[in-house]
Design a protein around this nucleic acid. Structure first.
Lengths: 239, 239
DNA sequence: TAGTGGTCTAGACCACTAT
DNA sequence: TAGTGGTCTAGACCACTAG
């Protein structure tokens, strides 16, 4: 039989099968059976290899699980390391209202440390954004973020967003990789005043270098009130 | 042509092709070309679909990258969240000598918190292992680990290992998933004495719930000297 | 124009599971 | 025994890239 291709003219029958199966099984309980390969062959009038290509994708995705001799079934959802989140999303996840007060937002020349972290040259233009961040009205942390101005043209002029990560997302720069370091320390006098704690109170210092693909999009240093904040991290993944 | 199968009698030609290609490209620089599919068809005398099955596996693995119209090439290695490590491996990675002094290793009945964290019932038998851990001779942290005795029969009797994670590894219980929480605090008098710091010194408190598959294999609470230890975490992954 | 990967066919035999 | 997924064949046409 010649290759007439699908009615839509694009040779993507396996996509049609894949999305059909996906629509069938999303929402099904793990262990529910998916249609058998030969059943789909008859339904779609395609070759079995085409159906297998469709199912393979769903298996790789972790949606389906094949059991030889028995059939194909909805898989137990895989665990995966949590996506990289910023303060706003993290507080929202905890059921707290995130508010931020910008203390400083300006163009600066990168110092040696920031330049290295942002993969820039010393003296390059960076955006320095300092915020006092609250949760349900109480100071939670003080954050100094440094951004590569080249990646964010007009960022300072366009009015600062509430969520940096949402703003990055909108520019296709959502971080997919982050290198964090965390240590315990005591609040400096300035930090204590802003965070409304006693001088020398316990704080958690959190540094992040966040990348979107190859591009370093954010370097930040945040100091959290230890009496109000515990950092949660999930590590690893299934299979 | 009938299905004579490979010389070894097992119908796994795609494995032979896959491992041949893997051996060719491991060590090659990203961007190096892999053999073309039709080239492998001739070399192995197999059908193209068989070659594609082999290559598909390597693409999913992240070793190869297909570029339509150009060929198949060695992919840039994907970043992936670091594997879950214990103290011994972490110190070794930092070039420090890890030593441990067992302060306590005994069978206990799980209290409510430990029982819940280990997915056990209160009163079930657990192993409680407390260690003072040093790096290059200086106290670094104090760790209380709780283990499910049912998963580790004879663990206490077989002599305590240096590395818990190596011991778990040997029993097929290497953690693949961990839920950590981190906070800053001050050392209690007892902690200060053991860690050889002043009472009230800054410490990092790190709790972990580590799983191997569905099984909770370790629940631990560790207190680190903040003057000696910074926690490093990598998050996210490519694609 | 030659070569590449992308898609697809219409079968086949195998080992395994469930009835 | 019937049904399932696992493997495999020997072709085919397509869009795309590169020389």
């Amino acid at each position: 039989m010649e290759d007439v291709l699908a009615p839509d003219g694009r040779g993507l029958k396996h996509v049609a099968v894949r999305e059909y199966v996906r629509s069938l099984v999303t929402g099904s309980a793990p262990g529910s059976p998916a249609p058998s390969e030969r059943e789909l062959v008859h339904q779609f009038g395609v070759a079995r290899m085409t159906v297998r290509q469709a199912m393979d994708a769903l298996v790789v995705e972790g949606l389906l699980e094949r059991i030889p001799g028995r059939g194909t079934f909805v898989a137990r959802p895989r665990r995966a390391a949590s996506r990289i989140t910023g303060y706003t999303e993290e507080m929202s996840r905890r059921g707290l209202l995130a508010e931020s007060q910008t203390l400083l937002a300006r163009r600066e020349q990168a110092g040696p440390g920031v330049a290295r972290a942002l993969s820039l040259t010393e003296g390059d233009a960076v955006i320095h954004w300092r915020r006092l961040r609250r949760a349900d009205g109480t100071p939670m942390c003080l954050e100094d973020a440094y951004l590569n101005e080249v990646l964010l043209p007009g960022f300072l002029q366009s009015g600062m967003p509430t969520s940096l990560y949402d703003a990055l997302d909108g520019r296709g720069l959502r971080p997919t990789w982050a290198e964090d370091s965390i240590t315990a320390d005591r609040a400096t006098p300035e930090e204590a005043t802003l965070l409304e704690v006693d001088e020398g109170a316990s704080v958690l210092r959190h540094s992040r270098r966040a990348l979107a693909g190859d591009k370093v999009v954010e370097v930040s240093r945040t100091v959290y009130r230890a009496d109000r904040f515990t950092l949660w991290v999930q590590l690893g993944h299934d299979v």
